[in-house]
Amino acid sequence: MNPENYIILSGVLFTIGAIGVLVRRNAIVVFMSVELMLNAANLAFVAFARINGNLDGQVVAFFVMVVAAAEVVVGLAIIVTVFRSRRSASIDEPNLLKY
């Protein structure tokens, strides 16, 4: 087995996450898809760290996790706020900012 299999798996997961972002309308699911993309990136970082033989990739993956946690906190708070005013979690619903 080649080490690039990890990277290809990462690419596949990232693609699936991107399609999820584009297709799903429930804001929470969209958020989960974003998380999936972040995780795919993390996998690539970890695999590259191993291929290159140093720990920096793992450190970056660690930072990605922290930032993702922060992003989830704020993003979910926004979703809750929007839901409160519009009674809906659809991402197409808040579309007033347009032409």
Binding site: L22, V23, L96, Y99
Partner: peptide, 17 residues
């Protein structure tokens, strides 16, 4: 041109892709 700004987040994401 402004019709491009349709307010749908997902369209913007598509353009990013």
């Amino acid at each position: 041109l402004r019709r491009l700004q349709n307010g749908f987040t997902r369209s913007y994401a598509l353009v990013m892709v």
